[in-house]
Each structure stands twice: as C-alpha cells, then as structure tokens.
C-alpha cells in the first residue's frame, strides 16, 4: 500500500510509515479487525469443542442406557428359560412314556372310546401326552383326541358354572365364567367341523358325533337350551351367546 503523506510504498502491517513516520490508519484498523476476528475465532472454537464434548457425553449415556436394556432382556430370557426347563422335563418324560407304553395305552384308549367315556379318555391323553406323539399307533386317534380335549374344557367349564357357590363372601366371576364357557363351546364346534372333515374312519367318526351329541345334551340339561334352540344359539357371536346364557342362568323360576 501507499503512504498518504509521503506517497511511498509501505507494508500493510506497518502502523507508522517507515519513511515519514505518519500513522497508517488502515494498518491500525486492519490490526484491530484481526484482533477481533481472532477473539471471535477462539470463542467459536471453544463453543464447538464444548458442544462436541457434550454430545459425546450424551452418546456415552445413551450407550450405557442401551447396555442396561439389553442386559435386562437377557436376564428376563434366562429367568423364563429356567422356568420353561421344568415344564419341558415333564413333557419329554411324558412323551417317552407314551412311546414306551404305546400298546397298553392304545388299548386303554380304545376301551374308553368304546364305552363312551370321553372325559376319561381326554384326561388319559392329557396325562400321557399321547396326542403329541407321532407314533403310528396313536395316529388313528388324532381327530378324536383333539375334539376330546375341547369337550373336556366345555364340561369342566359347565361344572364350574353349575356347581358355583351361592356364598357372597366367595368371589365368583359369573360373567367371566360364562364367557369362558362360550369361547370353549365355539372352540369345540370349530374343532368338530375340522375333525369331521378329516376323519375317514367310520368308527372314530361315530365317536366325534357322539361327543357332540353328549355336549348338546349337557347344554340342554344344565343350561336349558333346547335342541330346537341350540342351533340358533350356536350361530350367535360369542358375546351374544354370553348374554343369552346370562339371561338363562339368572332367570328367576
């Protein structure tokens, strides 16, 4: 740049002209600006570093949180597995027993069916895990086994309702029990429909039909739903069945 007084060439950083000693206002202003920029730069640098440190602190906390959550999930799985192992022990022992005693068990199962003891049959298959066995000896019972379990659930539910206590100090959830029965009943008829489509053996088909007939009779005897009403009752939704049964059971003589 050029000195304003002596018009000689001077440096931009020269605060005074080296030739005439005049003040270089431009250089002074430049130096002030540079100081100001430097200050701002350092402040910005400080802010950036502070923010970066803060974010990395947040990141660490997030990582710890994630680790704690994963740790909890692992512990829950371990605890659940430790309970499941106990059930699996009984189950695998039961299946081995069913395989080992197939001849004896199938004979008993046939006897129960011939006598029409479907509840005893259902209890037997639950106790001995025969419905889970893939052995050839049990395959012929497949459809009857599935339906018998549903039948047992229905009867068990009906007994709970019919033999309920009248003691007000003992909590009995009537609405809940009725809805449980209706859902078992729906389950039974769905299974009945499926199994009658699949069963090819006439003898076992007769057992399926016999169970259905017995359940209808039980519903008639204890819940007073006549044969002519039962089909329309079965076509109601589960909620409507519940309402209908409540009316029947709570109806005053």
């Amino acid at each position: 740049m050029i000195c304003k007084k002596c018009h000689k060439e001077i440096g931009i950083d020269d605060l005074k002209c080296p030739f005439c000693g005049a003040n270089n206002s431009f250089a002074m202003k430049h130096q002030q600006n540079m100081k100001s920029f430097d200050k701002r730069y350092k402040r910005t640098q400080k802010d950036v570093l502070k923010t970066a440190g803060h974010i990395s602190g947040l990141g660490k906390k997030a990582a710890i949180l994630a680790t704690l959550l994963i740790g909890m999930m692992v512990m829950i799985i371990i605890t659940s597995l430790s309970y499941a192992e106990l059930d699996l022990d009984d189950y695998s022992e039961g299946k081995t027993d069913a395989v080992r005693n197939a001849a004896e068990y199938t004979k008993k199962m046939d006897k129960y069916l011939e006598e029409g003891e479907y509840i005893e049959f259902a209890i037997f298959i639950c106790e001995h895990y025969t419905s889970d066995s893939r052995m050839e000896e049990y395959k012929r019972f497949r459809c009857v086994q599935y339906l018998a379990k549903e039948y047992l659930d229905c009867i068990q539910s009906m007994e709970r309702i019919t033999l309920r206590t009248g003691d007000e100090d003992y909590h009995f959830d009537m609405d809940g029990e009725i809805h449980t029965f209706c859902s078992h009943l729906e389950g039974f008829y769905e299974m009945y429909e499926n199994m009658t489509e699949q069963e090819r053996n006439e003898k076992y088909m007769a057992y399926l039909n016999d169970m259905e007939k017995e359940l209808r009779t039980a519903t008639n005897v204890y819940f007073h739903i006549g044969d002519d009403e039962i089909d329309s009752f079965l076509n109601l939704s589960e909620a409507q069945k519940g309402v209908k049964l409540e009316e029947v059971l709570k109806d005053e003589e």
Binding site: D90, C126, E127, E159, R160, I161, L163, R164, D167
Partner: peptide
C-alpha cells in the same frame, strides 16, 4: 368352607390331567 363345589371339581379335573 364356601361351598364352591365348582372349584373343587375343577381342581380335581385339572389335577387328573397330570396325575391319575
């Protein structure tokens, strides 16, 4: 005590499914 016979028979049937 509360004459909840339905519960008694329910327990019986549940137990029998596991132990004759």
């Amino acid at each position: 005590k509360h004459k909840a016979y339905g519960e008694i028979t329910d327990d019986y049937l549940l137990k029998k499914r596991s132990y004759s």
